[in-house]
Computed example of a mutant assay.
Amino acid sequence: LALRSGPQRREDLCVALWPDATPELARNSLSAALSALRREMGHDFVCADRFTVSLAPNAFETDVAKFQVAVKENDWAHATQFYRGHFLPSCFEEPLIGVARELEEYARLAFDSLFEQLEAEQRWEEIVIEARRALKLFPNSTSWQLAAMRAHRALFHFEAALEVFKEISNAARRENEPVPDAARHLARQIRREREEHPFMPPELVAPRPTSAENTAPNFPSTWTSFFGRDEEIEEVAKLLRSGERLVTLSGMGGTGKTRLLIEVARRLAPEWPGKIHFVPLAALSNAELFFSNLRDALGLEAAPDLPPLEQLARFLRGQKVLLLLDNFEQLVDGAALSLQTLREKLPDATFLITSRVLL
């Protein structure tokens, strides 16, 4: 009922939900199910007459509906954010299993289109992050692995790119299939470029943690030296050392907030008592996805029976983490309370935020 807008014939529901029951038993089962739904959600939640059943319009929303709207609007960034795992995972019979397959195909289309868009805009670091998440959902999708290889190559992460090639090769070997020519050709180019740049600074070839404890998997690399803002770096670092749990770097776009945040984190990394996690938020405009986006940035698998906030709280509780939330401005109205809730659940965590708007 939630997936299909408008009234549904009782007979169709009986056949779909109780295909092996007699008509009378199926009708009784439907009546019992509707009564239970009214008790749980309220009497006005279900609209029913002798022939049809529907749910009250505007009384609920679903992740499927949000996903479908994003796909229809070609909003690939939001579509892929809404798709955090297979929809309808416990449905193994028609017609819902057919709906689940169709949604899965749309999710693949959304990721395909997102990577195409990000590559056209040369947003290499975002490709690396999104490819990691996409390949957890759909392992061994060669086109996405190739996108990740190209992104690593553009970032001079030659070893990381070749690790992805190794995954492609291993998958092909398991299936007794040849390694795709495109992957072989790209790997040859990357090896040649690695040989041509033997003296490239290590942080450009393959970023390494400043210390064993203090680097997030997606901590961004920078390709130029940073001069002239030592006083600002030290001022922010001093605030964080003193125990300030929330510091916001605010200013107009293009003033170097993100770079300042990164340099502060680098300066603090050797001495910070816990891990440092970088969380990019520029592509996120739906505040409802704040917790799940943060969970994904930390590399956590989605737990079907656990809300993202509770999952984060269990994972980070007691840790003196430093969370770097970059580009928070578009979430201020919707996610400010979420941030406060997270701070209350994680009294040992510290937050360094960039935003064009003060929190």
Rank of each mutant, 00 (worst) to 15 (best):
Y83M: 05
P201A: 05
I190W: 04
V99T: 10
R153W: 12
A172P: 06
I168V: 15
A110Q: 03
S169P: 04
H185Q: 13
E126L: 15
E116S: 13
S141H: 14
E196M: 15
A151M: 02
S169G: 03
A147C: 15
V99W: 07
L135V: 09
P201W: 03
F199L: 12
P89M: 06
E94L: 14
P198S: 05
V179C: 09
A131C: 09
L186V: 02
L135S: 05
A134M: 06
G98A: 12
W144S: 01
E102I: 03
A187T: 07
L146T: 04
E126P: 02
E175R: 14
Y83H: 09
E163Y: 02
R108H: 13
P201T: 01
R84P: 02
F87L: 06
H86V: 12
E203L: 09
A154D: 01
E121R: 09
R174A: 13
Q145N: 08
A160C: 07
H197P: 05
R132T: 12
R191E: 15
R123N: 09
L137Q: 14
E167K: 14
I168F: 01
L88W: 05
A206V: 00
E163W: 05
Q189F: 08
R188Y: 08
I127F: 06
E105G: 09
R153H: 14
R194W: 10
E93M: 11
R101I: 11
H197V: 06
D112N: 14
E125C: 08
P95N: 04
N140G: 04
A160Q: 12
R150Q: 13
R108T: 10
L109K: 13
Q145F: 07
R84K: 10
F82R: 11
R123H: 10
L137G: 06
N170Y: 09
E119P: 04
E94Q: 15
A147P: 00
P178V: 04
A147M: 04
R191Y: 10
L103P: 05
L186I: 01
M200F: 07
R173H: 12
G85A: 11
D181A: 14
G98Y: 02
P198H: 06
Q145V: 05
L88E: 02
S143Y: 07
